[in-house]
Amino acid sequence: MRSLTDNKTAVALFAGVTLVGALSACSSPATSSTDSGSTDATAPDAAATGTEYADGTYTESGDYTSPNGPEKVDVTLTLASDTITDVTVVGYGENPNSIQFQGEFIDGIANEVVGKNIDELSVDKVAGSSLTSGGFNNAVDAIKADALAQ
């Protein structure tokens, strides 16, 4: 029995050492990729290899909710080398407040986004209109998906 116990101990010890070795081999690349940041690592690669999004003009709708209920804006962006070169927003507000805030947003949005990289957009309030930006951002997300699919 003692030799069987010794064999079991040896096998268990070998398995433990093998497991520790395998785990430490796996942990080294994970630590390395964590240091560089897997999300951040893809962005420089995309920039180094060229345009991530296909150049062109894209139009999408974005929905949002205001105190007056559901609202919608259509957003048209023109992209060149991932940079927004032109923007057009069409609002569909029916309530006087919605019409006013969408109009203010539409009048000020070009100053906020033209000349910026589409991935660097962070529109939260334009000319006093904060809710319209929700619809705008939803449309931009859809445009990004369209431009990647090209």
Rank of each mutant, 00 (worst) to 15 (best):
A139E: 11
V140Y: 08
A30Q: 10
A54R: 10
L79R: 06
N97I: 08
S133A: 13
N117M: 01
N117P: 03
S33G: 05
V123G: 06
N137Q: 09
S33I: 12
A43S: 05
T49A: 08
G91D: 02
V17L: 14
L79M: 05
G115H: 01
L77K: 06
A147M: 04
D107A: 09
K125P: 05
S66D: 06
T78K: 12
K8Q: 05
K144R: 09
D55C: 13
A43E: 02
A139I: 11
Q102W: 08
L131Y: 11
A41E: 03
K144C: 00
D119A: 00
A110V: 04
S129G: 08
A22Q: 14
D74A: 07
S81I: 02
N95L: 05
G37L: 02
T9G: 12
S36K: 15
V17S: 10
D141T: 05
S81V: 06
V123M: 02
K125S: 13
L121E: 03
D40A: 13
L13I: 09
A142T: 02
I99Y: 05
D86G: 10
V87F: 11
A15K: 10
G62E: 00
K125C: 11
S32V: 03
A145K: 09
S24Y: 15
Y53V: 07
L121M: 08
A12V: 02
A142W: 03
I143N: 09
A110K: 10
I109W: 06
D6Q: 15
L131D: 07
A54C: 14
V90P: 07
G50P: 13
S3V: 12
G103V: 00
S122P: 04
P29R: 00
S81W: 07
A110Y: 04
N68T: 06
I84M: 11
D55G: 13
V17E: 11
G69D: 07
G21R: 09
L131F: 09
S24F: 15
A15I: 08
P96L: 10
L121H: 05
E104H: 09
A30T: 09
I143Y: 10
T85M: 08
T57F: 14
G93L: 13
S122R: 06
E120Q: 01
K144D: 01
D124M: 11
S27E: 14
L77C: 07
Y53C: 04
A127I: 01
S27F: 15
A22P: 12
D119Q: 06
N97C: 03
A145F: 08
G16I: 11
S133E: 01
Q100E: 14
